Amino acid sequence: MLKKFLSFIFILTFLVACSEDETKTKSVEWEKYINSKFGFSVNYPPDWPIGEESDNGDGINLYVGNPDVQILAFASLYLEEISNPYESAENNGFDIQRITLDNGKSAELIIGKLDEKVYYELLFIGNDVIYNVKAEVSKSFFDKNEDILLKVVKSLDVS
C-alpha cells in the first residue's frame, strides 16, 4: 500500500512539474523581426541579443556578443540561372532535409559541420527571392539550443 502511495505521489509530482514547464514555455512571448525590404519575418527568443538591421536592409544578426554564435536572417534576389544555393552544401557533404514551416510551406534545411561549428541553414525560395535563416554555432550552443533553432527557422514567414 505504501509503495502504491509513493508511486502515486511521484507521478503526481512529475505531472505538476511538466505542467509548470509547459506554462513557462508558453507564457514567454517571442520577439518578431520583420524585414520590410523583402517582406519576411522570423520569430526569436526574447533573451537573444540581436544586432542592428544591415545597412542595405536585407536582414539582421539575430544573436550578437558571442564569437561562437552567428545566427542571421536575410534575403536576396534569386536568379536560378546564375546561382545554385545547394552547391556549397552538396560540396561540403551536408545533409539537406525538406521541412514544413509553421505557415505550411516547404523549405530546405541544410545541416552539417563546418570547421569546428555546426552549420544550420534554412532556404526558402519564392517570388524570385531566396530567404535564409542561417546559423554557424559551436557544438555546445547547438546541443543546448537545437529545438530553439528549429523553432526559429520554422517561423520564417513571407508576405
Rank of each mutant, 00 (worst) to 15 (best):
L6M: 12
L6W: 07
S7K: 07
F8V: 10
F8D: 08
F8H: 07
F10H: 03
F10G: 02
F10V: 01
F10P: 00
T13D: 00
T13W: 09
A17E: 06
D21H: 13
E22L: 14
K24Q: 12
T25N: 13
K26I: 12
K26T: 08
S27C: 07
V28M: 06
E31A: 08
E31L: 12
E31N: 15
I34C: 04
N35C: 11
N35T: 08
N35W: 02
S36E: 13
K37I: 07
K37N: 09
K37S: 01
N43H: 11
Y44S: 06
P45M: 10
P46R: 10
P46N: 15
D47L: 02
W48M: 13
W48D: 07
P49Y: 13
G51E: 08
E52W: 07
E53G: 02
D55F: 14
N56D: 15
G57Q: 09
G57T: 03
G59I: 05
I60L: 05
N61Q: 13
N61I: 12
L62I: 05
Y63I: 04
V64L: 05
V64Q: 02
V64W: 01
G65P: 10
G65T: 04
N66L: 03
V69F: 00
Q70T: 12
Q70D: 07
I71E: 03
I71F: 03
L72C: 02
A73D: 04
F74Q: 01
F74T: 04
F74M: 02
S76K: 13
L77A: 13
Y78T: 03
L79H: 08
E80S: 15
E81Q: 14
I82T: 12
